[in-house]
Amino acid sequence: MQIFVKGLTGKTTTLEVEPSDTIENVKAKIQDKTGLPPDQQRLIFAGKQLEDGRTLSDYNIQKESTLHIVWR
């Protein structure tokens, strides 16, 4: 499925993911596209910070959802 990651600059990155992907895995995909290391990424969805060990489905993140990224 496709999801979007929007940064503070307003730039949006598209990712191809599975609902079973962990947040850690998603951060690795973001690094592949942007070069930003996972330890500098904070992902937010529906006002919650996403924890590395959880999956996208744990947070009810579905296709075409938009996550927000904040740099540490």
Rank of each mutant, 00 (worst) to 15 (best):
A28T: 09
G35C: 05
Q49C: 10
L67N: 01
R42P: 02
N60D: 09
D39K: 11
E51Q: 09
G53W: 13
G47R: 04
I44H: 09
D32R: 13
E16A: 08
T14R: 10
T12M: 14
H68Q: 11
K63L: 06
I69S: 03
E51S: 07
T66H: 15
K27W: 05
I44K: 05
T66Y: 07
M1P: 01
D32A: 14
I61W: 01
G35Y: 03
G47Q: 04
H68W: 13
I3W: 01
L67R: 00
D39N: 12
P38D: 04
S65F: 08
V17C: 05
L8W: 14
E24M: 13
T9L: 12
L50R: 00
W71Q: 11
L56E: 00
K48F: 10
G7K: 04
M1R: 02
D21S: 07
K33W: 10
I61E: 00
S20W: 14
K11S: 10
S57M: 10
V17K: 00
R42H: 13
V70N: 07
F4W: 07
I69A: 04
A46V: 06
T12K: 09
I61P: 01
Y59T: 01
S65Q: 07
L36P: 03
I61N: 00
T14W: 08
G10D: 08
V70Q: 11
K29I: 06
K27P: 00
Q31M: 11
S65L: 03
D39C: 09
W71G: 10
L15M: 05
K33P: 03
T13Q: 10
T9Y: 15
L15A: 02
R42T: 14
M1D: 02
I3M: 03
T9N: 15
P37W: 10
T34Q: 04
F45A: 03
T12C: 09
R72E: 14
G47E: 04
D32Q: 14
M1K: 02
Q62F: 09
P19K: 06
I69N: 06
P38K: 15
N25V: 14
H68V: 11
I3R: 01
T34A: 04
Y59R: 00
Q40R: 12
V26K: 00
D39M: 09
L67G: 01
I30T: 02
T55M: 09
R42Q: 13
E51K: 08
L8H: 13
P19T: 07
K29E: 02
L56C: 03
F4H: 09
I30L: 10
G7M: 13
T12S: 09
W71I: 15
W71S: 10
T12V: 14
P19N: 05
K48T: 12
S65M: 11
A28M: 14
Q41R: 03
R54C: 07
G10V: 09
T14L: 11
T22C: 03
P19E: 06
Q49E: 15
F4E: 03
Q41C: 10
L8N: 07
Q62C: 05
S65A: 10
T22L: 11
G35A: 04
K48H: 12
S20G: 11
D32G: 10
Q40F: 11
K48E: 12
S57C: 04
R72C: 10
L56H: 00
G7V: 09
K63P: 15
L36R: 07
L67C: 01
H68E: 12
R72T: 15
D52H: 06
T22Q: 04
T13P: 02
